[in-house]
Computed example of a mutant assay.
Amino acid sequence: MVQTYIQKCRAILDTVEAQETQIQQAARWFADTILAGRMVHVFGSGHSRIMVEEMWPRYGSFPGFNPIVELSLTFHNLVVGANGQRQAMFLENVPGLADRILRNYDLSAQDSALVISSSGCNIVPIEMAELFQQKGVKVVALLTQEHSEKSLSKRTDGKKLGAFADLILDTGAPVGDAMLTVPGLDTPVAPGSTVGGAVLINCIKAEVARLLTEAGQPPKVLSAGVVVGAQRAVELFESAYDEHAHRLAKLYANVGVASYVSGTSAEL
């Protein structure tokens, strides 16, 4: 089983490598957003939360990304009872929830977005992508192409995440995600979308870092003290988190109804 899974993961790497042109395009959009002082919105419900946190914040990552993670859609460890998995799976297919989430942000056409959903069929991530596009935000969808094509959308119009994406990236996992068949077990095990998704995320991250550096704005990368020294690591963490706050502030300054403290009414 171990060797079989590793072999299938190697095939996933081949699928990712074949998408180098798409990865570079996504990175270019994201770098342009970050260089403009704005943020790349990263959203995923369910276990797609893993990919959101893989992008930022963690070692080897840098500010410029807005991780949108709703606990009601992603809090899995209790499984049953209050805040259980049944509720989370129900909520990620409630129409209108995406609009309530994005109501919190003042979006700009300079922004870009990465929306992650393996099936691309749940309502909330689909509506997130749709709303981003309506605001002129370029959307990159990270999904499992084969699985999405064979799955049924939960939307009444049948549209899937890919219908609202300017660019699609494929994790390379199979239909149903699980990749191994165990003799005597009638259901496959060991999913692959997390493997492909994490590789795609980090390919994008590395390419964005290159573009920012070449543009004269090298990113503040969260780095381990054992690599850069304890003092430098603290400096990087503090400055990276502060930059994140400064970028995030722009998403709140003019959101919704203007007040005397909002950016639009600063002269008052």
Rank of each mutant, 00 (worst) to 15 (best):
Q133F: 03
A165F: 09
Q22W: 03
P218I: 01
S193R: 08
V257Q: 14
A98F: 03
K205M: 11
S118Y: 01
L131K: 13
A18R: 15
K135P: 06
A253W: 04
F132K: 11
V16G: 01
K8D: 13
I50H: 08
T33G: 03
A88M: 13
H41N: 06
V52W: 01
K8Y: 07
F90W: 10
A230L: 15
F65K: 00
R38A: 01
V16F: 02
P63Q: 01
L236W: 03
T21D: 12
P63I: 04
N104H: 07
Q22P: 02
V124E: 11
A31P: 15
G158C: 02
G64I: 09
M179R: 13
K8E: 14
C121K: 12
Y59I: 06
Y59S: 06
K205E: 14
F90V: 12
G84I: 06
L91V: 01
H47V: 11
L236T: 11
E267H: 15
P219Y: 08
T171M: 05
H244K: 05
Q231K: 02
E54Q: 15
A109F: 03
K138F: 02
Q145E: 09
Q87T: 10
G216T: 09
Q25C: 05
L131I: 08
I126Y: 04
Q110Y: 05
T264E: 15
R155M: 08
L142W: 07
E267I: 07
L13Y: 08
T156E: 01
L222K: 03
I123F: 01
L212T: 10
T264S: 15
E53F: 11
L97V: 06
E92F: 08
L248P: 10
M39L: 15
A113R: 04
D32L: 00
V175H: 08
Q133V: 02
T171L: 07
G64H: 00
R28L: 15
